[in-house]
Amino acid sequence: MGLETLLAAVLLIALTCYALLGGADFGAGVWHLLAHGSSRREQHRLIGEAIGPIWEANHVWLILIVTILFTAFPSVYARLAITLHIPLTLLVVGIVLRGATFAFRHYDVKDDEIHLRWDQLFSVSSLISPLLLGTILGAVTVGHFPVNAAGFWDGYVSPWLKPFPLIMGLFTLTLFAYLAAVYLLLETHNPLLQDTFRRRAIMAALIAGLLEEAVLMLGQNSAPHLWGELTNSLWGRGIQLTIGSLTVAAIGLLLTRRYWWARSCAILQVTLTVWAWGIAQFPYLVPPYLTVFNASAPQVTLWFIAVALGFGVLVVFPSLWYLFRIFKGGGSLA
């Protein structure tokens, strides 16, 4: 495996971590928005306490992705920044509002009416950001970005404002919500809350399953490369089958209240989904022109990041483990 492939794999690992950790924080925000019924206040409290100590660390995965992208694959970063200017800008605004309102809500010295406003903004931006993130990934999957576009619409809007990316957006959102619901089950001992999130987790799992099918269907025309890999190859079919069985297993485990196992299934399921996408996309970063091989930075740069990553891992993983051990008990994830 060449260095550029290694760094592409690192990008995929970082994306997986961002989905599993940062994604779940967004998902928790979605449940914050949808919280209703008599336990509404408790649900809000649970969500606030669950993500408080960890969201900033989880957010850094995204920064790492951007950093590796512009260092190791600078032309890809530049291409995305030009063609996807609009959704990226909106994503950033969503991220700012999400983080800022969470901080306003939780680090204020008083607790009064205005906190309801912060809650609303927090949860709406938690809903919009994953939608945009998924849309952006969808647009990257389709690729074919116009190089010298004739007009504004062709150059900067139509590459992402079309069915396949938008469905990817919805799929991402549901997947994040699903993860969050499953994680939250292990954050509380209140049977009422557990019941609520159990129902939600099952619902989200079902919708995510349907959307995954929809992504594949649409992909047949929009992203033939992805579709071909996932449906015509042996590994593609295998991975799809595994993801499907994991979904069924997770739902079964949720029904029988085996939450720890359900969470493990969910984590595996999301990991495999991200990897299935990544491997099917390989070697393209943005099809059909930009690949892992032709868009990579010079070897020295790649070496430098690889070494920096090696050292970084030695520092970051033990620290992350320490963080999660303190706040999430027993060395378990998220």
């Binding site: 408080g52 900033e56 950093t67 990041i305």
Partner: peptide
């Protein structure tokens, strides 16, 4: 960024890890 990324980007990858430790221990 396309021009500078390969040259000065490695510095930012060091920064990325500083952000990590900062955010973790801040929590």
């Amino acid at each position: 960024m396309e021009w500078a990324g390969p040259i000065i980007g490695p510095a930012f990858s060091i920064e990325g890890f500083a952000f990590f430790t900062e955010a973790i221990f801040l929590g």
